[in-house]
Design a protein around this nucleic acid. Structure first.
Length: 587
RNA sequence: CGGGGUGUGGCGCAGUUGGUAGCGCGCCUGGUUUGGGACCAGGAGGCCGGGAGUUCAAGUCUCCCCUCCCCGACCA
C-alpha cells in the first residue's frame, strides 16, 4: 500500500510558470515528473508507475502479435551509422560523443541500422522469415526546440519495431499486423486517435501512416473529412479533381492590363474595364504561376514553375514533400535575372514547359483540370490573356499537389468538405522497403538458392509521449483523470480522521482488504492535514476511484467518488470492498 | 537557427533614482484546529542564471554567454 505520509511526492499549489500545456503543468504539479535537463525529465514514483503501465500494454500487444523483444545499447559506434550516411545526414539532431581513445559514438535517435545488422548477423534463409523484432528504448535527439514537457523532449522512451520479409506481400502482412496491434494499444490506453496518410518521402511508393491523437496543442496538422473516414497529413492530401466549370469556349484573347502585377489588381481591372455579363471576375478565374527553385541533393539547381488557381496559395512544404530529397525555395532576384523570358506578374503557360521557348519545367496543381479556362499572364509586361484553356491552348509537363489545403476543400474520397485539425503523433507505421537492407547487405537465400534482398517495415510508438498525450486528453481544471488501465494505482483512499480514531482504523482496514483482493491502493494517511487539502490532492493526482473514509462513517458509509464522472455516492462500509473491486475489474 | 519574452529559497512572485534581499505557499518546532487548499507564535532555507566590467557600493547600470517559455524554421 502506498502511503501519502511516506510517498516521495510533493504536490504544488501553483502552476509552474514555465509550463504552458496542460499535461506538462499537471504532471509537474501533481508530482509525476520533474525537469532535470533541457528536454529531459525525472520520473517520480507515481509517474514511473504510469510510464511502466503504458509500457506494459505496449509490450503485451507487441508480444501478442508475435513480435519479439530485444534490447540494444543506446550508445552506438559511429561506423554503423556511417554505412547508411546517417552520421552526416542526421546533422545537429544527433547527440555525438567520444570515448577516451577519441573514437566517435552517438546516442541512438532510432535503430534501423542496428536491427538490420542484427538480422543479417543471425539469419540467412527465407525459412527464417518473416520476423518482427522490437525494443522499448530511451532515444536521444538533440531537438532544436524541446517543448511542452514530455511532448517533445530530447530524451524520451520509444517502442520501435522492425519487420523483415522476403517479399512485398509479406511486408504488407507485417505492416497490417503492426497497424492492428497499434489500434489495440491505443484503444486500451483510451487514447483517441486518427490514422492519417503520411508522406513516404524519398523512398516513394511505400505506405506510411501516422497515428495522431487529435489534441489542439499537437504539432501536426491534418485534414479529415466531415462525412467519411478519410484523413491525411496536410502534406499528403490529394486534391479532389472536380469537373471544370466551363462558361465559354471563346478563343484566347490578349488584352492590355497595365499596372496589374498582382491577382487582386488584375481582378479589379477586369471588373472595371472588361466586365463579364454573367458574374464578376474572381481570383479563382486566374491562373497563378509560382516560380520556384529546386536544390537537388547533388547541389545543382533547377527552376520550376507551378500553376495554381489565383485564389490559392502554393504550399512549399507540400511541394517539397513530393520532390524530396530536393529542397524548394522561391526563385530570388538573381534567379529571375537569368531568365529574361519571365516577366513577374505577367507569366503565362505559353512560354513554360520543357519543350517551350524557356525550357522551364511546368507543373500544374490537379485543380487546374484539363478543359478548364483561365485568365493568365501573356508574357508581356502589361498584358494578360483571357479564355486560355488547359489542353487546348497550353499543356504542362505534369501535375503536382501544390495548393495550400484549407478547411472546406472537398474530400478526395467523397467530395464533402474537409476540416483541419491538430494532433500529436503518437505512432507511425511505415513500409521502409529495401533501402536499409540494400545498403547494409541484408539478403537471404530463397527456395531456389538465390540471394534475395529482405524488405523491411519500421514502426514506432512514443511511450513517454503517450503518457503526456493521455494527460492532455484526460484532465480538467482540478487535475488529471487517468484511465483505469494506466492509473498509478487502482484506488485512492482519503482518510479524514486523526491518528488512531475509528475513521483511521476503518480506512486502514479497507485499504488492506482491497489490497488482499489484488488492488493497488494509495492511502492518504497524513495526520493533521485538513480534509480540504487531501481532497484537492486526490483530484490533482487523478486516480479514477477516490474512496473517502470520513464523517459518513457515523452512518456506516464510505463515499465512492468517480473522478471522471465527478459523482459521489454513499456506500455502506460492509459492501465497500465488493463494490470497489467490481468497479476496478470492469475497467 | 531567426523574432519576442523571461530568469530572485522547493513553487508562485515583489524589489523605487544603485546603499548589501522581501512576501505568499510549502518546510521545521510548539499550541489550537479537522468535510473543500485552517489559525497563532517562533524558526530554517537565497553566489538574486553564469562570467567580465563600471562604481566607495550592483538583484538594480554595461558587455558577453546560458536557461526556460511563445511564434517561426527544423523534426524516423
Amino acid at each position: 500500500m502506498l502511503r501519502s505520509s511516506t510517498l516521495f511526492v510533493r504536490t504544488l499549489r501553483d502552476d509552474p510558470a514555465d509550463a504552458e500545456v496542460p499535461s506538462h503543468r499537471l504532471l509537474v504539479r501533481a508530482g509525476y515528473i520533474r525537469r532535470a535537463a533541457p528536454g529531459g525529465y525525472t520520473w517520480l514514483p507515481l509517474g514511473w508507475r504510469v510510464l511502466r503501465k503504458v509500457e506494459a500494454i505496449v509490450r503485451d500487444e507487441m508480444d501478442a502479435m508475435g513480435a519479439q523483444e530485444v534490447h540494444f545499447p543506446a550508445m552506438l559506434p559511429r561506423d554503423i551509422y556511417e554505412l547508411t550516411g546517417r552520421w552526416e545526414e542526421y546533422g545537429d539532431n544527433l547527440f555525438r560523443l567520444k570515448d577516451r581513445k577519441g573514437a566517435d559514438f552517438l546516442l541512438g535517435p532510432t535503430h534501423e541500422e542496428m536491427f538490420t545488422l542484427l538480422v543479417k548477423d543471425l539469419y540467412s534463409s527465407y525459412k527464417d522469415l518473416p520476423v518482427s523484432l522490437y525494443q522499448i528504448q530511451t532515444k536521444y535527439r538533440d531537438e532544436a526546440r524541446p517543448r511542452a514537457g514530455l511532448l517533445r523532449g530530447r530524451e524520451f522512451l520509444m517502442k520501435d519495431s522492425y519487420s523483415f520479409d522476403i517479399d512485398d506481400a509479406g511486408l504488407a502482412a507485417s505492416y497490417n499486423a503492426h497497424r492492428d496491434a497499434y489500434e489495440r494499444i491505443f484503444t486500451r490506453l483510451k487514447l483517441p486517435y486518427v490514422i492519417v496518410k503520411a508522406m513516404s518521402g524519398a523512398m516513394g511508393g511505400s505506405a506510411s501512416e501516422e497515428f495522431l491523437a487529435p489534441i489542439e496543442v499537437g504539432e501536426d496538422t491534418f485534414v479529415r473529412c466531415t462525412k467519411c473516414d478519410y484523413s491525411a497529413n496536410t502534406e499528403a492530401v490529394t486534391t479532389a479533381v472536380l469537373s471544370p466549370d466551363i462558361s465559354s469556349y471563346a478563343s484566347a484573347a490578349v488584352i492590355e492590363t497595365p499596372n496589374c502585377p498582382t491577382i487582386a489588381s488584375l481582378v479589379d481591372f477586369l471588373n472595371a474595364n472588361n466586365a463579364r455579363t454573367d458574374r464578376t471576375w474572381a481570383a479563382s478565374d486566374t491562373l497563378k504561376n509560382v516560380v520556384l527553385q529546386l536544390r537537388h541533393p547533388d547541389g545543382s539547381t533547377e527552376v520550376l514553375v507551378v500553376g495554381v488557381p489565383g485564389d490559392r496559395d502554393a504550399d512549399i512544404k507540400r511541394i517539397e514533400a513530393q520532390v524530396s530529397p530536393s529542397e524548394v525555395e522561391p526563385l530570388d532576384e538573381a534567379g529571375f535575372a537569368k531568365h529574361p523570358g519571365l516577366f513577374r506578374g505577367y507569366i503565362g503557360p505559353q512560354v513554360l514547359g520543357t519543350t517551350s521557348s524557356t525550357g522551364i519545367r511546368y507543373l500544374l496543381d490537379p485543380s487546374v483540370v484539363a478543359g478548364s479556362e483561365w485568365v493568365t499572364g501573356a508574357n508581356v509586361p502589361g498584358s494578360h490573356v483571357l479564355h486560355l484553356v488547359n489542353g487546348r491552348d497550353f499543356t504542362a509537363d505534369g501535375t503536382i499537389e501544390a495548393v495550400e489545403v484549407i478547411a472546406g476543400d472537398p474530400c478526395p474520397s467523397c467530395r464533402e468538405p474537409l476540416e483541419i485539425a491538430r494532433g500529436i503523433e503518437i505512432g507511425h507505421v511505415f513500409q521502409l522497403g529495401r533501402k536499409y537492407a540494400d545498403t547494409l547487405g541484408l539478403s537471404v537465400l530463397d527456395q531456389n538458392g538465390k540471394q534475395v534482398v529482405v524488405t523491411m517495415g519500421s514502426y514506432g510508438i512514443g511511450v513517454s509521449r503517450a503518457v503526456a498525450s493521455i494527460a492532455e486528453v484526460f484532465h480538467d481544471d482540478l487535475g488529471i483523470k487517468w484511465p483505469r488501465a494506466i492509473s498509478p494505482v487502482d484506488v485512492h483512499i482519503v482518510v479524514t480522521g486523526k491518528n488512531g480514531d475509528d475513521i483511521t482504523i476503518a480506512g486502514e482496514k479497507l485499504g488492506a482488504e482491497l489490497e488482499a483482493q489484488g488492488l493497488e491502493v494509495l492511502i492518504d494517511d497524513r495526520n493533521g492535514v485538513s480534509p480540504g487539502v487531501k481532497f484537492k490532492d486526490a483530484e490533482l493526482i487523478g486516480i479514477p476511484t477516490i474512496v473517502v473514509v470520513g464523517k459518513s462513517l457515523a452512518e456506516g458509509n464510505i463515499e465512492l467518488r468517480d473522478r471522471h464522472a465527478g459523482t459521489n455516492q454513499a456506500v455502506p462500509l460492509a459492501n465497500a470492498v465488493q463494490r470497489i473491486v467490481a468497479l476496478v475489474r470492469e475497467g
